[in-house]
Design a protein around this nucleic acid. Structure first.
Length: 304
DNA sequence: AAAGACAGCAACCGCTCTCGA
DNA sequence: ATCGAGAGCGGTTGCTGTCTT
């Protein structure tokens, strides 16, 4: 942490500009910022916020302080195992796109997740890597550059975008249509990687997936949920709404052919069914089908 | 008990993107 | 089309507390 400091001590700067503080925020500054944000519902640009709240800070600093620390909806404290696994999984899909990962973890900030990743998870993955890749012949096996870190992690987790996409296309919901291009050209392409179902193969079921909800207007409401140990953990992720050209009836006819049954776990099956019947009425997922291509993935062990 | 190493994390930096003039 | 300001993002820094020797 940094000590509060003055940005510039040059006499001319001091004369021409108001002194801008840097470093740690004092409780008084926090109070000023919170009071201002509450009074004004967070309206206005950040430089105005800084000025009007009487803070000797740049707008950028105020924004960061608010987003990462003062926002009322922040969840403080240690990451739960569920959150941790979700982060690992999302990172395997999204890489270092912390803001997008954070968007799927309510109450957590990108900075928090980034720090958690760099300080905790990375180390664990590294230790996993050292135990799982001791026989690796890859010339990059010892490359610790951050740019490769993501791919390494991905490999450790047995995931890649390539096999993820293949895997996706094996999913009945995407592949069952008699005209695959329909999904390929619309939903599959409209949904980017951020909104695709996320499935995770692990010792016990801890599956995050994106649930498309169809409305009469033809909009798809993307809701990310996950199941752990047979219990719904709720909508862990933000809802995203995308517009598509298909009507509700179109979608229903496409999806009516889906027959999704989880034969592995009655409880999970019930959960999945309930979820889809209540929220989606889309049909059922065939977890065996979903997992068909997953057999090639390396088994995950999160008991770090 | 002291010193060095390490971990955690708040905050800054620099870059890119977006949007309005 | 261009430019500038503001916002957002990922990478990095550096301080503090804790652990280890």
């Amino acid at each position: 942490m940094r000590k509060p400091e003055i940005r510039s001590t040059k006499k001319s700067d001091v004369v021409n500009k108001k002194k801008l503080r840097k470093g740690l925020w004092s409780p008084e500054e926090d109070e000023k910022l919170v009071n201002y944000m509450v009074r004004n519902n967070g309206q206005g640009c950040w430089s105005d916020v800084a000025r009007n709240a009487g803070l000797e800070r740049c707008g950028k600093s105020c924004r960061l302080r608010w987003i990462n620390y003062l926002r009322p909806d922040l969840k403080r404290g240690a990451f739960s195992n569920q959150e941790e696994e979700l982060i690992i999984h999302l990172h395997s899909l999204l890489g270092n796109r912390w803001s997008q990962i954070a968007a799927r973890l309510p109450g957590r900030t990108d900075n928090e997740i980034k720090n958690f990743w760099n300080s905790t998870i990375k180390k664990r993955l590294k230790s996993m890597s050292s135990t799982t890749t001791t026989t690796s012949t890859s010339p990059n096996a010892s490359d610790e550059s951050s740019s490769l870190e993501s791919n390494k992690d991905l490999n450790i987790l047995g995931f890649s975008h390539a096999n993820y996409n293949n895997y996706m296309m094996d999913m009945p919901i995407f592949a069952s249509s008699s005209s695959p291009s329909m999904f390929e050209n619309t939903i599959f392409n409209t949904m980017n990687i951020d909104t695709l179902p996320m499935l995770q193969h692990s010792g016990y079921l801890n599956t995050a997936f994106t649930v498309p909800c169809f409305s009469q207007s033809g909009e798809v409401d993307i809701r990310d949920s996950y199941i752990e140990n047979g219990g719904i953990q709720g909508d862990v992720c933000k809802r995203e709404t995308i517009s598509i050209d298909y009507t509700f009836d179109d979608m229903n006819s496409i999806l009516s052919n889906c027959n999704i049954i989880d034969s592995n776990n009655d409880n999970k099956n019930g959960v999945a069914e309930n979820l889809f019947q209540e929220q989606l009425n889309l049909g059922e997922w065939d977890f065996e089908e979903l997992m068909k291509d997953v057999s090639s993935f390396t088994s995950l062990d999160y008991s770090f």
